[in-house]
Design a protein around this nucleic acid. Structure first.
Length: 465
RNA sequence: UCCCCUGUAGCUCAGCUGGCAGAGCGGGUGGCUGUUAACCACCAUGUCGUUGGUUCGAGUCCAACCGGGGGAGCCA
């Protein structure tokens, strides 16, 4: 007989029909004449209750040897439940223990575990409610992101993971090499250094920190594109919102200025939030109940809201006018710190805030310079709880200005020849932004540590599993 | 990288001014019950992160190291 997923079974009309389910046992409760098994197969947060009557010879015997964590297959009748916590249940006719899980050594218990402990058993944590729910939300969002762009005529562009330049300037890079490091360390003098002409690519190579510059190439030909893939940063960041390897979504749109860019970012976030609320209802209720009380209401509010849009100068004014004493004093020209972002989103505007037109000194070379020559058309989307979730900008599309800015920032112009070429031939105003998938999942689920919304997180000193 | 906190049973944690190592959960055994964080009784479980120091005596005090967490910076 074909296997029925638990999600489907729980939604079926219980008319005594025979079905087969398979999955992992969450708990077992034993009575004299009856055994109750809670089984989960990942298709939903809810378990299915399997009722085994002891007089029923085969299932009764098998049920005895079943423990928490065992994998089983059960065939039986789907019937209305007599209990009060579920509407349907499976009355077992056949029961098979597929893989046992000795109770003395199985690391997951019925009780609640700390996330810190579960991180150490990343191979088993998807069997918990929280990590199952996170995995389903993550999968939903990934698909919804593609759908959002595909429905709006964006082309999905695969930008390279290995790059031969660190042109993005977005952070520390992981080096990719086939040179024999041990031999280098032993042999050559420290002054000589490695001979990169002998390296795999004939020059130093790195893992990408952003697909943006490559995406700009395709936007300069195909109008609107997006990338969605892994990026790598070798920064020694030890926080609840940084990873060394993370997936990033980067749309890039031609004939689009900073306002169009903000419209896209805002619509994107609101559409995806509305989607996760409507399509992941059961999991979202779990997060609302157990992880971040009130998150459903707050996300619903955001889906219907209009994001506040202010300039950097206005943000500085607002912060200076407040009576709050910040650890880092605010003055025009300094970058906004976490405490400032929190204050703006949580205390002043009570919701997402888009800040634009930052001083050029604290932003990347490729952001379009404003006429005041002091600020650039960058934009950050700040949200309560997390701070910066999106960073983007209108790109500098004027050849002369871009070249000047590259030099001002002390970067080697020759490395950017192809990037400058885009401004030489058919240049066009264009904009884009980057959104970290994991941060967005944090925002939607209320999970406080980014290492708990990524299946196998990579962080400084940690590449287990 | 910096600052703060922390490390005791399988898990979560208590252990006071230094004096015999504890609880709950989980596990085992038995009982009871259409149960649902099931319930009741009994039983077992420790390199107190590691190394060194102070002391008659260290889980407790000191130092170094290792691991974990939070905050900051960098950013998405």
């Amino acid at each position: 007989m074909e296997r029925t997923r638990v999600r489907e079974a729980l939604r079926s009309e219980p008319g005594g029909q025979n079905i087969t389910v398979a999955g992992w046992v969450r708990t077992k409760r034993t009575g004299k004449n009856v055994v109750f098994l809670e089984m989960n197969d990942g298709s939903s947060l809810s378990n299915i209750q399997i009722v085994v009557e002891s007089e029923n010879a085969n299932p009764g015997q098998v049920a005895e040897s079943i423990t928490t964590g065992s994998s089983i297959r059960a065939t039986g009748e789907l019937v209305p439940s007599m209990g009060k916590n579920q509407t349907v249940e499976l009355r077992a006719i056949e029961l098979e223990l597929i893989g046992d899980a000795p109770g003395e050594t199985y690391p997951l218990q019925k009780k609640r575990h700390s996330f810190e402990y579960l991180r150490e058993i990343a191979h088993l944590r998807p069997r918990t409610n929280t990590f199952g729910a996170v995995a389903r939300v993550r999968s939903h969002l990934s698909f919804a992101i593609h759908r959002y762009f595909q429905e709006r005529g964006f082309l999905y562009v695969h930008t390279p993971l290995i790059t031969a330049s660190d042109a993005e300037g977005a952070g520390e890079l992981f080096q990719v090499t086939t040179l024999d490091l041990e031999r280098l360390a032993r042999g050559q003098g420290a002054d000589a250094g490695p001979d990169y002409t002998k390296d795999f690519f004939g020059r130093p190579a790195y893992l990408t920190v952003s697909g943006q510059l490559n995406a700009e190439i395709y936007a300069s030909a195909l109008d609107r594109v997006y990338t969605f893939g892994p990026t790598f940063r070798a920064e020694n960041s030890n926080t609840t919102r940084h990873l060394s390897e993370f997936w990033m979504i980067e749309p890039e749109v031609a004939f689009c200025d900073i306002h169009c860019n903000m419209d896209l970012a805002e619509d994107f976030l609101k559409t995806l939030i509305a989607g996760v609320l409507s399509d992941c209802g059961e999991d979202m209720e779990f997060f609302d109940k157990r992880i971040e009380p009130g998150i459903i209401e707050s996300l619903s509010g955001i889906a219907d809201s209009t994001f506040t849009r202010i300039t950097y100068s206005e943000a500085v004014d607002a912060l200076q006018k407040s009576d709050v004493k910040f650890e880092f004093p605010v003055s025009w020209g300094v970058d906004l710190h976490s405490e400032h972002e929190k204050f703006l989103t949580e205390e002043v505007f009570h919701g997402p805030v888009i800040v634009t037109d930052y001083p050029k000194e604290i932003k990347a070379f490729y952001m379009r310079l404003n006429d005041d020559e002091k600020t650039v058309r960058g934009m950050d989307v700040l949200v309560p709880r997390l701070g910066e979730i999106i960073g983007g900008s209108q790109r500098e599309d004027r050849f002369d200005v871009l070249q000047r800015r590259i030099k001002e920032m002390g970067l080697p112009v020759e490395d950017y020849w192809w990037y400058l070429d885009l401004r030489k031939f058919g240049s066009v105003p264009h904009s884009g932004f980057g959104l970290g998938l994991a941060r967005f999942i944090q925002y939607c689920t209320g999970m406080t540590n980014i290492r708990d919304v990524v299946p196998f997180p990579r962080a400084p000193g940690n590449a287990a599993f």
